[in-house]
Design a protein around this nucleic acid. Structure first.
Length: 106
DNA sequence: AACCTGACTTCGG
DNA sequence: TCCGAAGCCAGGT
C-alpha cells in the first residue's frame, strides 16, 4: 500500500521542523509525535544536529516540553534566545516561553 | 550486531 | 513548583 509517508522517521522530522512558522515554537516531543513516534523526542535532537545545516532547518524554533531552551549557556542558548526574540517570542523571568501562546499547531 | 549518544519526557516525592 | 531517576529510541560507530 502506498503509505504516503514512504520516508524515514528522520526525514519526516526534517520536513516537520521546516514547516514551523516564524514566531512560533514546537517541542521535541511534539515533532516526534507528528513524525510517528511520541517517544522519540531524543531522536529529534539527533536530526537537529545532523540536518540543520544541510537542510537549513529553523532549529531555533524547537524547544523542550517545559517551554525552555534546551541548549546550555555558551553552547547556543544565547543565540537561540536572540533569534526567537527577534521573531517576537517572549520569555518570562525563568526563561520560559508561554506555550499557550507560541506553540505551533500543525 | 552490540553499544553509545543525547538541545528529551514523564513521573514520583 | 522543583529535582532526580528511569524510560526511550533511531542512527552512527
Amino acid at each position: 500500500m502506498t503509505d504516503h509517508h514512504d520516508m524515514s522517521f528522520t526525514e519526516r522530522v526534517r520536513k516537520l521542523i521546516a514547516t514551523i512558522p516564524p514566531g512560533q515554537v514546537a517541542t521535541y516531543g511534539q515533532i516526534a509525535t507528528h513524525a510517528g513516534n511520541p517517544r522519540a523526542a531524543r531522536q529529534v535532537v539527533r536530526v537537529l544536529h545532523s540536518s540543520t545545516d544541510k537542510y537549513h532547518l529553523p532549529w531555533h524554533r524547537v524547544i523542550n516540553s517545559k517551554g525552555q531552551i534546551g541548549l546550555k549557556p555558551g553552547q547556543g542558548y544565547e543565540l537561540q534566545r536572540a533569534m526567537l526574540i527577534d521573531e517576537g517570542v517572549t520569555f518570562d523571568e525563568a526563561g520560559r516561553i508561554d506555550l499557550k501562546r507560541y506553540l505551533w499547531s500543525p
